[in-house]
Structures are given as structure tokens and as C-alpha cells.
Write a protein that binds this DNA or RNA. Structure first.
Lengths: 185, 185
DNA sequence: TTTTCCATGTAACTCGTTACATGATTTC
DNA sequence: GAAATCATGTAACGAGTTACATGGAAAA
């Protein structure tokens, strides 16, 4: 529901059309969240059907008319509801790219280190990008700040993993896939 | 692909059936990742079709036969491929529950604080749970450790947000859908 | 004049979850 | 004898992405 919340929250401040919303999110919030164009359009349509927003066409030359959206009273109520739900709950974070760490020993430690070094580069670049982003108005700054803190912590973490990985030797696969005899109940 | 990687990695160590895999993940890795039963079964079937694993039935009384899976050579190759991809890349993390923070000003600060306090409770509980989890073998411990570190950082972050939120007064909705006199940019 | 930007949309697809169904077996 | 556990599955749905299609306007 957080995408709906985002759209409603933005629309609450200014009426906007889909392209505009997508662009705003893509520019200002790229480091924190993302919302594909198709998703934005889809969601806006859905919210209109649900009566959360209304739509007003404004023509500009002969291009596709802008569908400018505006919150309804019902939409405002939904916003309040979603906001409270969002603020009061914590959504656990899953680190998809941690899974590989569980199987580090499947690789020679040199290679593992090289791969993690590569990851560290990517991570550092992301942190740099997040730091480079211009300051944002009001509470938006909170999100950016959070992301920065988080990324910095991730860099530190990854560096420590790499550091602790140095002294271990190579280990070949533990249980070969060809093995036949092995059976377990 | 990280779910496939996880299954392959576990199957590489011991041959196992779906129920067993799900249980292992649900018990040992609950704080780091999750994998629903249906997903596990589905993935195993998919991987079998793809030739990454083979399946051996073992009957136990009259219950549904255990389908015990084992890596093939092809599966081992895939595992290696997925592992490298996983280790070398960084997957950006999105904090879904940050969105609400952007719109904190839509609520009276008392209420915002109460909601965030509620979130903090949930977060603290999660941290406690992560800390309570028993130590795990080998590299698995890395994941647990990461999650713990992360959660601790999140607690600190949330506490700082709450602390900085204290001194600000109430602010009514900035641009009401019904159109009031009050407007702010 | 060619590229980029504006502005919309649709269809197919992937991934994963929910909810349901089955039936033996062990535990209380 | 009831409840939890073992062990499998299926069907429907939901959310979101990808890739595609359209066409005028502005900028290079």
C-alpha cells in the first residue's frame, strides 16, 4: 500500500498528472523508492475507480490530454488511514543479497573476495550517489537521510565481512552431486 | 533468483525434500528470509523441469511419498553461476515504511509520536527476537549477524527521529481537498 | 533533422502469496 | 478422541515489471 500512500500524499499537496508524479518520484526519491510509469498510471486509474481521486483533463495542443488528479474527501480519509498504518507498523527488511554469503565456502577465498570487492564498489557508488543528491524540502529529507545512514552502515558491514574473510583457505564442494550411494531418512 | 540459490545451496549440502527445506528455512533463517511452502514446492518442481535437480521418492507408510531432491551437475553449475551473481552485485534496499515519514506533518505531532512509538515497540521486539535466535553453523551466522546489526541501527535511527520530532507543534492538512483558506508551499 | 522530451496507455509475463484440499501419523 | 504434525499439492489472485505502441512538441 505504500505506493498508494505516496501518490495520495503527493496529490494532497499539489494536483498532478501521472507523468509529473512519476518524474517527481524518479528524480527526488530515486534513492529511497521507485515507481514505474506503468505502475503510476495503473494506480491512478485504480484509485479513481475507488473514488479516492478525481480526474480533470487539460488539453495542451494536440498531445494526449493531461489527466490531472485531485484527492476526494474519501481519498483524504484513505490517506489518513494508510498513513497511520504505515507509521505505526514496521515492515521487516530482507537482504536478498545475503543469501550468497551463506555459501561463501563454495568458492576459493580469492574469488569470493574479488566478488565481494565488486559488490563493495557498487555499494560505495550508491552511497556516493545518495550523498550527492541535493537536499529536499521538509520531511522528505528524512528519507534521504535514512537511506544515507543505511548505506553507510552497509559499507561498514561489508568491509568487515571482507576483512574477516582474508585468512581462510580454499574448500572444494562438500558433497559432490554425482554421489549415488548416499541416502538419508 | 535468491530463492533458487538458497534451495540449491542447501540441497548441495544434504539431499532434502520440500517440507524439510521449508522447515529449515522457517526455523533457522526466519529473521533473514522466508520461503512459503507453496513457493518451495513450486520452485523445486521448476528446478526439476530445468534439470537442476533430480527427485527420488521414498515411501514412509501410507503418507504422501517424500520427494527427495538432489543436485545434478547442471544444478551445481547453476548454483555457481547464481552464487557469483549474488555475491558480486548489490541489490538496493527499499524501506517501504519510510514513505509515511514524508507526510508526518499531516498529523498532530502527539499522534505521530504515538504511532512511531508503536513502531518502535515492534522494531525492538524484532531485534530482541533476532538476538534470541540460537547461533548457527558456519556462514549462516553472517546473515543473522547482519540482520542484528541492521535492526540495531534501525532502532537507533527511529529513536533519533522520534527525538527530533518532539518540539514541533501541530499542523493541519496543508491543502485540503475541500479547499480552505490555509495554503502552504 | 534527428533526437529527446512530453504524455498516455496496453498486453503479456514473472514472481510470489493466499486459501484451499487431502489424508496418514504422532502426540496429548 | 482431538489436535498438531507430516507431506504433498492446486487454483486463483495480486502486485509489479517489461516491452511495446502512439504521436506531437521542443531542443540539438
Amino acid at each position: 500500500m505504500e505506493r498508494e500512500l505516496l501518490l495520495l500524499g503527493l496529490l494532497r499537496q499539489h494536483t498532478m498528472h501521472g507523468y509529473q508524479l512519476h518524474e517527481l518520484i524518479d528524480r527526488a526519491l530515486a534513492s529511497c523508492t521507485d515507481l514505474k510509469k506503468s505502475t503510476a498510471y495503473f494506480l491512478l486509474e485504480k484509485m479513481e475507480k475507488a473514488g479516492w481521486v478525481t480526474q480533470t483533463q487539460t488539453q495542451a495542443g494536440k498531445r494526449p490530454p493531461r489527466r490531472v488528479y485531485q484527492l476526494t474527501t474519501h481519498g483524504e480519509a484513505e490517506f489518513q488511514r494508510l498513513l497511520r498504518a504505515n507509521l505505526s507498523a514496521h515492515t521487516p527488511v530482507r537482504f536478498a543479497d545475503d543469501i550468497g554469503l551463506a555459501f561463501l565456502d563454495a568458492l576459493k577465498s580469492e574469488e569470493a573476495l574479488a566478488l565481494l570487492a565488486h559488490r563493495l564498489t557498487a555499494l560505495t557508488a550508491e552511497l556516493a550517489a545518495a550523498r550527492a543528491a541535493p537536499p529536499h524540502e521538509g520531511r522528505l529529507q528524512l528519507l534521504i537521510e535514512h537511506q544515507r545512514r543505511h548505506l553507510a552502515a552497509e559499507v561498514a558491514w561489508l568491509e568487515s565481512v571482507i576483512a574477516h574473510l582474508q585468512p581462510s583457505p580454499a574448500s572444494p564442494p562438500p558433497a559432490a552431486p554425482v554421489a549415488r550411494k548416499t541416502r538419508r531418512a
